[in-house]
């Protein structure tokens, strides 16, 4: 049988001789680190499954965008950040990023059910959650807004000379918004410390990347602004973490912004009301079977001798925490009617 020509797997060489970040290496995690990745990703998965269930039962209203399938991205990237000084901002698919930041699942779930104990006191909902304490700046419902806002956070880091880096997540859909490029331009012009993370889950609601993007290799979208980009396997938490290390090294060295395109996949519809008829069930199943990020970590753990039995207590603990958050979110009271008028303005005039 004739040999087929060797196919290069590496990304095309850069077109210019400008300095580029190194090709990221897959992160070499210790057993403890791997177990922590596994725990966080499983927490997101189980939490989102529960949220989907509560939505079906009518406890959660409005829009609810689940992160199932994309867990490796938030967990891998955020594990590399310095929680003391770095800031994170994202769009409306934000539950996973908050859980990856160690925010109490009860507060998140209670926000989803619109209760006073929710992280936004029930006034934000699924798409509008924040934790200034954790430097998590939302949770924004307008597609692409977080890119300019995140660039502003990076501006503040530079202005304050606090050594912090902003990480702004957005999807392949938002990557076509004009303000993304306005922000890219300013970020590179002013060498702002920001990592732009394009979570390419391949569908902007129902429109595939190929149907919406003239340049579908989204990591290249910064080229005309001289922002380097790296394409990353977003289904592999170790690849995600490795890319984050490289991106952080670049940004912390004062070299300006960088783009990470995370190739990932969402198993569920765009939101709970999306039947996802635009793709085949086989496509989704193939992803689940071959590329599931949690199964991937499990395999890594197996290599280190961690058995299925040893993982059981972690899974049980997560189930317990998620169930507890759901019970809490169902039972804790709605906001006091007087809350309707609070928080409109900070000052009294």
């Amino acid at each position: 049988m004739a040999k087929s020509p060797a196919k290069s797997l590496s990304v095309e060489p850069p077109v210019t001789n400008r300095e580029r970040p190194n090709e990221p290496k897959r992160f070499e995690a210790s057993k403890e680190q791997l177990l922590e990745f596994y725990r966080q990703m499983l927490l997101i998965r189980r939490f989102e499954e529960k949220a989907g269930q509560l939505y079906g039962l009518g406890f959660i209203g409005g829009f609810c965008h689940l992160y199932i399938g994309q867990e490796a991205v938030a967990v891998g990237l955020q594990s590399a950040l310095d929680g003391e000084k770095d800031s994170v901002i994202t769009g409306y698919r934000d539950h996973g990023h908050m859980l990856a930041y160690g925010i109490d699942p009860k507060e998140i779930m209670a926000e989803l059910t619109g209760r006073a104990a929710g992280i936004s006191r029930g006034k934000g909902g699924s798409m509008h959650m924040f934790s200034t304490e954790k430097k998590f700046y939302g949770g924004h419902g307008i597609v692409g807004a977080q890119v300019s806002l995140g660039t502003g956070l990076a501006f503040a880091h530079k202005y304050n000379e606090d050594g912090g880096v902003a990480m702004a997540y957005f999807g392949d859909g938002a990557a076509n918004q004009g303000q993304v490029y306005e922000s890219f331009n300013m970020a590179e012009l002013w060498k702002l410390p920001i990592i732009y993370v394009i979570e390419n889950n391949q569908y902007a609601m129902g429109t595939s990347v190929n149907r919406s993007s003239a340049e579908d290799q989204l990591y290249k979208r910064g080229e005309s602004f001289r922002i380097p980009g790296i394409q990353v396997d977003g289904m592999d938490v170790l690849a995600c973490r490795g890319a984050a290390e490289e991106a952080l090294a670049w940004v912390r060295a004062g070299k300006g912004p960088i783009i990470l395109e995370m190739k990932t996949y969402r198993y569920r519809g765009h939101s709970m009301s999306d039947p996802a008829k635009y793709r085949s069930r086989d496509e989704v199943q193939a992803m689940r079977d071959n590329s599931d990020p949690i199964e991937g970590v499990k395999k890594e753990l197996e290599k280190l001798g961690v058995t299925e039995d040893q993982l059981k207590p972690i899974e049980q603990e997560i189930r317990r925490a998620v169930n507890e958050s759901a019970d809490f979110a169902e039972q804790t009271p709605e906001p006091d009617p007087a809350e309707l008028y609070t928080d409109v303005l900070v000052g009294t005039y």
Partner: peptide
Amino acid sequence: PITEYGFAGVGTGAAMGG
């Protein structure tokens, strides 16, 4: 640059950042 949407967002983000 002439980029109102962008710099309004950058300013707003900077305000959120303190």
